[in-house]
Amino acid sequence: MRIAITGSTGLIGTALVRSLTADGHHVVRLVRRPPRTPDEVEWDPRRQWVDTDGLAGCEGVVHLAGAGVGDHRWTAAYKKTIRDSRVLGTAALAEALASLDTPPRVLVSGSAIGIYGDTGDRETDESTPPGHGFLADVCQEWEEAAGPAAEAGVRTVFARTGLVVARGGGAWAKLFPLFRLGLGGRLGSGSQYWSFIALHDHVAALRHLLDTGTLSGPVNLTAPRPVTNREVTAVMGRVLHRPTLCTAPAPALRLALGEMAGDVLASQRVLPRRLLDSGFSFAFPDVESAVRAALTDTR
C-alpha cells in the first residue's frame, strides 16, 4: 500500500513511518522543502500548495502536521500559528486530494480531544458536541477544513487524539524528567481527568483507521480508562520510585502558562467508543502499563 504522511518527523509520524515500512508499505513523506529523496513530496501549507504529482497512486493519507500546542506561551501570534498550521494545511491537502484523477481511498486527518472543551467528570464520546474555548474552536475548523476530500468521495476519519504517553515528545515527555528528579506532583486540584494513550497504541489505532473501511468521521484515540491527574501522579511516583510531594497550584500555573493553563487544568474524561466498537484492542489500556511501555521503548 502506498501511503502519504504529513508530519512524518514528529513523535507520532516517526513511529508510524517505522511501523508501516517494517510491514512493507511504501511511505511517501510530505516535506516543506525541495525533495531530497524519491520518497519525499514537497508541499507548502502556508501557501496552500501541494505537489499533486507526488500523491498519484497513494491509497491512503495520514495528516499529522501542525505546530505544537505546548511549545510556546499562547500569545496572539502563536495562537494564529497553531490555528493556521492546522486549518490551512488541512485545507491545502484536502483540496489537492480532491483534485486527483484517482483520489486515495482514505484520509486519516489529525484532530484532538480538545474539541470537547472542559467536560468535568462526565464521560465523553464521539456523540458529544464540540465544547468552547480556543482549542475547541481550532479543532472544529481543523476538521471542517477536510471537507473537500470527503466531498470527493474520500473516506475521511478524524483521529481525535488524547495525551500521548511517550518519552520522545509531546506533553508527557516533559513529565518524566520532573518526576525522575523528585519534582513531580499534582497540577491544581489533581481532580481533573486526563485521557491518555500509549504511543504504541496510537500508532496501532492509526493503522486500524486506515484499514477499517466502515470508519469515518470522528474517532477518539484515547485509552479506555481515563484517570485523574492525582492518579497519574501516584503512578509516575510508584513506577519511577520517587516522591510526589510537589504541587503546582492553579494560580501559579496561570501565572506561568497564561491562557494555556486553562487546558492544563481542564478535565476531559474521553472514551474511545467507536474505536472499541470497531474491534480495536489496546495493548496498554491503563496508565501504569502505558508509562512502563514508554520507559522500556528504546527507539
Rank of each mutant, 00 (worst) to 15 (best):
V164P: 02
E144N: 14
A136C: 02
T156Y: 13
V157A: 13
Q140R: 15
D121R: 04
A150V: 04
L163P: 06
K174Y: 08
G153M: 01
R155K: 10
G114M: 00
A159Y: 07
T124C: 09
G169C: 11
R160A: 08
S127I: 06
G133S: 01
F158H: 15
G131P: 05
V164T: 11
E144R: 15
S111D: 03
G153Y: 09
S127E: 10
F158R: 06
H132I: 12
C139V: 14
G147P: 04
L135M: 09
C139K: 00
D137V: 09
H132W: 10
P130V: 03
G114L: 07
A152M: 08
I113W: 05
D125C: 00
W142K: 01
K174H: 14
E143C: 06
A173Q: 06
G147Y: 09
C139P: 03
L163F: 13
A112V: 09
T124M: 02
A173G: 10
E151F: 07
T128F: 02
V157P: 00
R155S: 05
D121V: 11
C139M: 06
A146C: 12
F176G: 03
C139L: 09
G131D: 00
W172T: 15
A159D: 08
A166W: 03
E143Q: 13
A150L: 03
A166D: 15
E151H: 12
P148S: 07
E141Q: 15
G120H: 08
V164C: 10
E143I: 10
R155H: 00
T128E: 14
R155L: 08
K174G: 15
T119L: 00
V138I: 13
A112N: 04
D137G: 06
T119V: 06
A159N: 07
A166C: 12
R160Q: 13
V165L: 14
A136W: 04
T161F: 03
D118Y: 06
A145P: 07
V165M: 14
I113V: 15
Y116E: 12
H132F: 13
K174E: 14
G169D: 01
A159Q: 03
A166T: 07
A166L: 01
R122T: 14
A171T: 06
F134A: 01
P130F: 10
T156N: 13
P130L: 03
P129F: 03
G168W: 04
G133D: 02
T128S: 11
W142N: 12
P130D: 02
V157E: 10
P148E: 01
G153S: 05
G133I: 10
P129T: 00
T119M: 09
V138N: 05
D118V: 03
S111R: 05
G133Q: 02
D137N: 08
K174L: 14
F176I: 15
A112R: 00
I113G: 08
H132A: 14
D118P: 06
R155Q: 05
V165W: 09
A152F: 00
E143K: 12
A136T: 08
P177H: 08
T156Q: 12
D125S: 05
A171F: 04
A146Y: 12
L163Q: 04
A159I: 00
A150N: 00
R167Q: 15
P148I: 11
R122L: 11
A171L: 13
C139A: 15
R155F: 02
D137Q: 12
V164E: 01
A146E: 13
T119Y: 01
D121K: 02
V138P: 06
R160L: 11
